Computed example of a mutant assay.
Amino acid sequence: MLVSSLGFVRNVALWLLCVGVALVSWRFMVGGVESTMGFVAYHAMARPLAFYAHVVLAPVSLALVPFQLWQGLRDRRGTVHRLLGRAYGVSVLASGLGGLWLAATTTAGLVAALGFGLLAVFWVATTAIGIAFAMGADYPSHQQWMTRSIALTLSAVTLRLYLPVPLLLDLDFAQSYTAIAWLCWVPNLLIAEVLIRRRPSLIPAQ
């Protein structure tokens, strides 16, 4: 009973965080970039293609995560799972390449640029490898690599959990942002590796 209850709470939290953060990320469509995303608005002016590819499509990949982890959908609607997987892959590719361009041109400094840049590279790479294994019908390897991909997609959630911390603790935001550029994804990837090595089935039942 306890395990079942914890699984339910985990699944509800996953849906709320992924869909909620995706919707919040699209707030610029209503309020405008300057007023809702002021600290990165310079990207929208200097490199709009990369900026909008990232901020429009990265939330798409995040919102698709719970659907791709939904075992019932995979088991009963395999075609839908594959179609959503393709949409996830396209969203990651476009938003990841856009994110890499933004990282290379950030004003946050070299360390932050490396953090976000490596996130973009690993995000695209793990997704591409995972899709390649699916196309080759190697589903255990597909599952493992998509676990890594999803862990990196969830950096959108952990990033937003970390961003208020400097303000709450009265820390220097610029220095904290440099640390967050790494903290938002490295622990996620490490947790994914632990799960891959410890659990025979990585995708939770829903």
Rank of each mutant, 00 (worst) to 15 (best):
V121E: 05
G89F: 04
G31C: 01
A120S: 15
H54D: 07
A50L: 08
T105I: 14
S91L: 01
L49A: 14
L69D: 05
G98E: 05
S95N: 10
T107Y: 10
L110T: 14
A137N: 15
A58K: 05
A205D: 15
L2T: 11
L16Q: 06
A13F: 13
R198S: 03
W26G: 00
A156D: 03
T36N: 00
L14C: 07
F51E: 00
T126C: 12
L167D: 14
L171R: 05
A41W: 02
V65I: 08
E193K: 08
F51M: 02
N188Y: 06
V111K: 09
V80A: 15
I191Q: 05
Q144C: 06
T158S: 10
V30Q: 01
L183D: 10
A22S: 05
Y177L: 14
V65M: 04
A181E: 01
V124D: 02
T158G: 09
V9E: 13
A112I: 01
P166N: 10
Y177C: 09
M135F: 13
G20S: 02
A50G: 11
Y52G: 05
T105M: 11
W26D: 00
A58T: 09
W182R: 01
L154Y: 07
L23I: 02
L84I: 08
L69G: 07
A137S: 14
V12I: 15
I129P: 02
T106S: 10
T147E: 02
C184T: 06
S61G: 04
L2W: 12
L2V: 13
V40K: 03
T107D: 13
V12P: 09
R27P: 02
A50D: 12
N11K: 15
V92S: 07
V157C: 12
H81S: 01
Y88R: 07
S141G: 08
G38H: 09
V65T: 13
A205L: 13
L169E: 08
L171S: 05
G136I: 11
P187T: 09
R82Y: 07
L171Q: 07
L17F: 11
V9S: 11
A132E: 13
S155C: 03
V194F: 11
G38R: 08
V65R: 06
T153P: 03
A128K: 00
R47K: 09
A87T: 05
L114R: 12
L152A: 03
T106H: 07
H142N: 05
G31S: 03
V80S: 14
V186K: 07
M135N: 13
Q175E: 15
F39V: 10
R74Y: 07
A134V: 09
E193N: 12
V33K: 01
F51A: 02
F51K: 00
I196F: 00
V157N: 05
L163A: 08
I196S: 00
Y139Q: 06
V56M: 11
A87G: 13
L57E: 04
P140V: 01
H81G: 04
C184W: 10
R199P: 02
Q144A: 09
S155D: 01
I196Q: 00
A41K: 00
L6H: 12
M37Y: 04
G38M: 06
W182V: 03
V194H: 02
L161K: 05
G72A: 08
Y52F: 12
G130W: 07
L84R: 08
L190S: 07
V121N: 06
A53L: 13
L23S: 05
I196R: 01
G109C: 04
L167R: 15
T79E: 15
A87S: 11
W145K: 03
A156R: 05
R77E: 11
G136H: 15
